[in-house]
Write a protein that binds this DNA or RNA. Structure first.
Lengths: 147, 147
DNA sequence: TTTCGATGGTTACAAATGAAACCAGTTTGG
DNA sequence: CCAAACTGGTTTCATTTGTAACCATCGAAA
């Protein structure tokens, strides 16, 4: 362990990134194969399915997406007729987004698959390991959110 | 918690991705501002600095990069004269990559910054939380590597 | 009320990425 | 010995992404 050497394999930013990339890549197969969705599109669908009605800005906050990603994802889901836009009464810049029947159907189909995926990944860990990853991730999120 | 609803904020793939993205984004400022490196370029520099001499394929394995990323990163670092290629004696398809003095200097300058970054992030956690994230990440890596 | 800075959202453009085709060289099996 | 399969690495092309500029609207202050 010479001090001037950095071991990439043990470097937290790298490990986190690779791990997230692996998990995300594997999970994305589900919505990609199933419906040809991109990640931003999946997150948009997921956000609207969960909350019911949101603005693009809210979507961006909830799912940590840049507003251009939101904009494009919304445009695509609208093109598929999976969501519709409704103007805001008081502020004409704002649009309220809602899933259509078709969008909701896709969402309802995806949810069990997503949950199963998560469950299966976590099932490979011991009880302590599961607790550790949950605790560690939460702690890091908290630590970084205030920076 | 209706069963048909997925809470994105508690969904592991999403949380992991967002966390890694935040950390990686923050860390990237260091090598981006300092030397205008991209992530693949940083990883290449880091890999070669750590191991001394590697082929492009080895680099891809060590740092989990697609071979096109490696190829492009290597090309750019070569353009900067931060690394050189040496043909393999036995296999003329293979090139052995090494950092030049300039590349090594950049690497040596980056290592303490990288370590400091990691230290500072971890310093915001309690001892237990640090142990948890390390344990959890290792466990997940292990669980996914064999899938 | 007019003006000016902020805000919701879209678009244009350049850079980064992934998939697949590709080239050169190497190995294997017949 | 030769063809076919394979491997290291590069390139091409289409897609995705981020930045910044942009448009329209809004709110506050003069």
């Amino acid at each position: 362990m010479k001090p001037e050497i950095l071991e990439l394999e043990n470097f937290l930013p790298y490990r986190l990134y690779r791990l997230a990339d692996t998990v995300s890549r594997e999970f994305s197969r589900i919505y990609k194969e199933r419906h040809g969705l991109t990640r931003p599109e999946w997150r948009t669908l997921s956000g609207l399915g969960q909350r019911g009605m949101m603005t693009a800005t809210e979507l961006g906050e909830q799912s940590a997406m840049h507003k251009t990603k939101v904009s494009r994802a919304v445009a695509e889901l609208e093109r598929r007729r999976w969501l519709t836009r409704a103007p805001d009464e008081n502020d004409r810049r704002v649009e309220h987004l809602t899933l259509t029947k078709a969008g909701l159907a896709a969402y309802r189909e995806m949810v069990p698959l997503a949950k199963a995926f998560e469950r299966e990944v976590l099932a490979r860990l011991s009880e302590e390991e599961r607790a550790a990853i949950v605790r560690g991730v939460a702690a890091l999120e908290e630590a970084l959110s205030s920076s």
